[in-house]
Amino acid sequence: MLINPVEKDQKRIRELELATGETISDCYQCGKCTAGCPASMDMPPSVIIQYLKLGQFDMAKNAESIWSCMACLTCSERCPKNVSPAAIIEGLKNLHLRDMDPRVNLETMDRDFLARSPQMAIISGFRKFI
């Protein structure tokens, strides 16, 4: 794996920091975010951030696990360095969504789910996945 950060990636990481308001280098990899994360991610928050620290932007951006974040904010609340992994993950998701790459398909969506679920679940889901 390439450890030396690519210049192009450094620029994208800087843009992500500007968009989210987070400073990625503040993370010192204590792992409290991952320890508290309820989402059973195969690539957990501290690892996503470590990839960004190593300049491996696409490894973080294309992690499937970012789509399992439920914004419970446990990670952000417990971070001793005031980093918000939830915000960084949302920043990565937004890059996909703004490229018109949605993660739920409205046409095949379960109609029972739409009929049964509270409006807040549907609206939040649309905001996070479309």
């Binding site: 309820p38 989402a39 059973s40 789509w67 399992s68 439920m70 914004a71 419970c72 446990t74 993660r103 739920v104 969506m109 789910f113 679920s117 807040m120 679940a121 549907i122 939040s124 889901g125 996070k128 996945f129």
Partner: peptide
Amino acid sequence: VDCCGSYLVMREPKKVSKL
């Protein structure tokens, strides 16, 4: 104070069931 899975029910209902 554990999370119930929130809006993830739209995409991963099994995970929400487990939580």
